[in-house]
Amino acid sequence: MAPLIEVRGLKTYFYTDDGVVRAVDGVDFTIEQEKTLGVVGESGCGKSVTALSIMGLIQTPPGKIEAGEILYHRNGNVTELTNLDPKGKEYRSIRGNEIAMIFQEPMTSLNPVYTIGNQIMEAIILHQKVGKKEARKRAVAMLEAVGIPLPRQRIDEYPHQLSGGMRQRAMIAMALSCNPSLLIADEPTTALDVTIEAQVLTLMHDLRKEFKTAMMLITHDLGVIASMADDVVVMYLGKIVEGSTVRNVFHHTKHPYTQGLMSSIPSLATKRHRLVPIEGVVPDPFEVPAGCGFEPRCPQSMGICKRETPPLKEVVPGHRAACWLYE
């Protein structure tokens, strides 16, 4: 498969009154065309900031992309997104047309004063260059595709009239109505009940196939990652600590942090056993440890871990980890 997005050495920092937050601190990964990349990690590890950096939506100030490149492959050409003006014409057209994003809380991206139909139609008119009548037809079809019952009626309702699950579907409909090559989904089901989550995940899975859309799926839920992703990167303190295919990451786990995550969650499908938690807490972003960021919590830490930051590198073919155990 060919790459769609290549992120190289990305650093996105925030300059706050309390100091510099290295939200994304040298991150490398590739999203393949038509594939789903799962991004997993705990609160504050930089998942959303990574996504917003690709979207060109980092608020400056306080944020700034300090280093790195985001290579976007299309029609045989490569565009370096960080070279574009985030507010300029080209980026605006990429955003929405080619790269779309759905957020955890759909109310933040649906406008409460417009009907969902108006909002989807607006996206269609803008991106597909069709008239109002045709746009409405396509919007109804889109709502139908995402499984909203009575789409001809629902299209004229306002976001607050829909349930959480339906709002999330409306968001997906809006995001997909421009047929993007990449869909970034930031915790798309975290706010939903489990039976509704299953509906939405199944829908995303099917639509992604149908529309041949690549996806960057951000979540802290290892279950969601396991059932949706082709490739996975695990983030900790603004860095990728492990990355490979979903099977490698789950079945041949390399990094002590990933191992810790796996052993600290109960699964429905395994026998009851005592959980093995990761000791301690994620450090404050202003007090990032020297050396390996995971060292203070790592059960396998060694002398070098305190002093030097382990590079992210291939430890077996196709499987990357940032850990001195694999030197």
């Binding site: 489990v194 839920d221 429905l268 499908a269």
Partner: peptide, 14 residues
Amino acid sequence: EALMSAVPVPDPDY
């Protein structure tokens, strides 16, 4: 039954 089947299991081979 439905609730149990809906839970995402952290195992890609499941």
